[in-house]
Design a protein around this nucleic acid. Structure first.
Length: 394
RNA sequence: CCAGGGAUGGCGGAGUGGUCAAUCGCAACAGACUGUAAAUCUGUCGCCUCACGGCUACGAAGGUUCGAAUCCUUCUCCCUGGA
């Protein structure tokens, strides 16, 4: 169970394609997980999930917990059954929420960039201390205030919840740091995340044949911390790895982080770059040896009327709409249903749920096709050409 | 025909003598979004100008006033009751 085989290695980069065996079938890599935080893909009618080309999905332990879904999932016989999705599925540990509902919230930072500017919630700007963090992080775990009530997530609880949820791949409970944190804080956090990892591994021992536990490399933008973290995790007997945390303020930062850490991880294990990416980042990640990704972009931007096409990102606007089918390639959901740019724009205008449905189906199709092309290109030794082709418009 | 009510920028709908080119919502337009606090958020949104500023505007025409989307008169149209 959970064996990973590399099928093709790109001769000109660290890109590789492979297969990861799981209880819900083989996961061909590289692949991008579609995010279904609360055991549902936002915008999609659950009835459509089986006919979707999704081969990898990720849900979220924290959100499933606070929404009262863990018990329901357990009662249904697991998350695959619960969400009517029978392929490979992961759950995030809730570690990202330690950041996104805590420091990230008060300082309007995301895991990329330097805070503010792109964040939608007004923040207080730069802060060096962690004192005003609404999430209280201690050695034991992290305490959130949710609906006025405290909720404490510990490594043991996160793992137990993830057992009950039943995804194929689960992530260790970690703290995701941001670029606003100091190196001192990042180092402390990193050490704590390492101690948490040992607790996660211990809590998971009895389930290791049923679910794959991936530790998450942290260390922010600091080379020595990243290397320390990667080395610490590489020494663990685990079926795969996550790369998480602050990936810096620029693309170069993210590339450097990958170049520092990936060579330190066992080559014969899949590496999942958490929360990334857009088209460009997927190519840059694959080129540096990333096998798995997950990102809200395909689904979120679809709801925000951005569609991904072979010609680049395009916003759905009635003023630019044509009577062309959105994507006429084989397997395209908009081709199958005959959805034109104009039709989709009219649905958005009327707040018709089909707008979200087809925009989301389309973006999922686009990213799924792109990942397929990446795998094929790696097999044929043409990854560099494919990357170049995509990056002229992305 | 009588009695009421109403006509505001693409639409809905505030405003009821000056601080009104006119709150707000929708639509439109230009964007943002990277382990989902996100069907969200930011900006523009009468015309001319980079801007200062100018011009035309609140059904129509007159009038009162230093000043009117706001008050008065007449007209046009719409809605609700009653004949």
């Amino acid at each position: 169970m959970f064996s990973f085989s590399i099928l093709h290695q790109d001769p000109r980069s660290r890109a590789r394609s492979g297969v990861f065996e799981t209880p819900h079938g083989i996961l061909e890599t590289p692949e991008l997980a579609i995010v279904g935080t609360n055991a549902a893909f936002r915008g999609l009618n659950p009835d459509n999930i089986p006919s979707t080309p999704i081969r990898y999905a990720i849900a979220n332990t924290f959100h499933l917990l606070v929404n009262g879904n863990v018990d329901k999932i357990e009662a249904t016989g697991g998350i695959h059954e619960f969400m009517n999705y029978r392929r490979v599925l992961a759950t995030d540990s809730g570690g990202f929420q330690v950041f996104s509902l805590g420091f990230g919230k008060t300082h309007s930072v995301n895991k990329l960039g330097g805070g503010n500017g792109t964040a939608i919630f007004p923040g207080t700007g730069r802060a060096e201390s962690n004192d005003d963090n609404p999430v209280n992080i201690t050695e034991e775990g992290a305490t959130f205030t949710y609906d006025g009530k405290p909720i404490t997530l510990t490594p043991e609880l996160s793992i137990d919840l993830q057992h009950r949820i039943g995804a194929d791949i689960i992530f260790a409970f970690d703290e995701c740091t941001s670029s606003l944190n100091t190196k001192e804080y990042t180092a402390q956090s990193l050490e704590r995340t390492h101690r948490w990892l040992d607790r996660c591994i211990a809590a998971h021992e009895a389930h290791r044949n049923r679910q794959a536990l991936f530790p998450v490399v942290q260390g922010g933008v600091y080379r020595d911390l990243r290397e320390r973290s990667a080395a610490f995790m590489a020494a663990k007997d685990v079926p795969g790895y996550g790369i998480g945390g602050s990936l810096g303020k620029t693309k170069e930062d993210m590339h450097a982080i990958l170049e520092w850490t990936l060579p330190l991880l066992p080559d014969n294990r899949p590496r999942h770059l958490l929360g990334i990416g857009n088209v460009r980042d997927v190519f840059e990640g694959v080129e540096r040896g990333i096998d798995l990704f997950d990102c809200v972009i395909p689904t979120r931007e679809a709801r925000h009327r951005v569609l991904y096409t072979v010609g680049g990102r395009k916003q759905v606007r009635i003023g630019r709409a044509t009577d062309e089918i959105i994507d006429s390639r084989p397997g395209s959901p908009t081709a199958k249903a005959g959805v034109t740019w104009r039709q989709l724009a009219l649905w958005f205008q009327a707040h018709d749920p089909r707008a979200h449905e087809y925009a989301t189906l389309h973006n999922i199709f686009f990213f799924t096709e792109m990942m397929k092309e990446i795998r094929t290109a790696i097999a044929h030794g043409t990854f560099a050409e494919l990357k170049k082709r995509y990056l002229t418009v992305y």
